[in-house]
Amino acid sequence: MKPIVSIKNLVKAYGSFTVLHRIDLTIAEGEVVCVIGPSGSGKSTLIRCINHLEGFAAESEIVVDGVAVLPGANLARVRAEVGMVFQSFNLFPHMTVLKNVMLAPMRVRGMKAEAAAARARDLLARVGILEQAEKFPGQLSGGQQQRVAIARALAMEPRVLLFDEPTSALDPEMVGEVLDVMKKLAGTGVTMVVVTHEMGFARQVADRVIFMDGGRIVESGTPAALFDSPQEARTRAFLRAVLNH
């Protein structure tokens, strides 16, 4: 399969503290990758490097759809192809839900307002909140806000979608509605990289699960392989801890 994200020798340090140690990872087009691991293991940092929300060492290389991820003119191109959904939604609170979804296609892709509005309504319908289009984010529940955030990312028609613990800030009764939207997405051919603590979701939806610890990829494999017969002691310890908490 054609690789869409290729990460080579990724090193990231804060001062003398190295957060990511020489990570190599290739993600195929359309693949759904879940990243799991203990707190502080570098999961967020890893996916935030892919769209350069975090800079990284000069000897490292990340290529997205043939374009090197580096500060400069090409970065806008990369970011237009890579959507991101944050733990804390980060919707624009001063705009209606509809405007939130319309903004980037208009400003980055130069779309006309009517076309952007039509696309936004389509997407809001897809995530099941079309009736909230004229409300402001603050008037919505957490689960609804996160679904708007997913629609906002999708409006750019990204090739790759990054999720950083999209359900961790939600009340338990709203986790399901967001995971359902993500499951539907996983079948559409968009490449997804999902940092999550939802082991059920990872097992059901992921093509590949990556277990990180201490800034390294300790083990990766199909959900069945990783969850049912983990090879590494650290993976076993982590899974034991999260599955019987």
Binding site: A80, V82, N90, L103, R107, V108, R152, A153
Partner: peptide, 10 residues
């Protein structure tokens, strides 16, 4: 700022 950057806004 991060959400804007991730969307590719200038």
């Amino acid at each position: 700022f991060e959400a804007s950057a991730a969307l590719g806004l200038s």
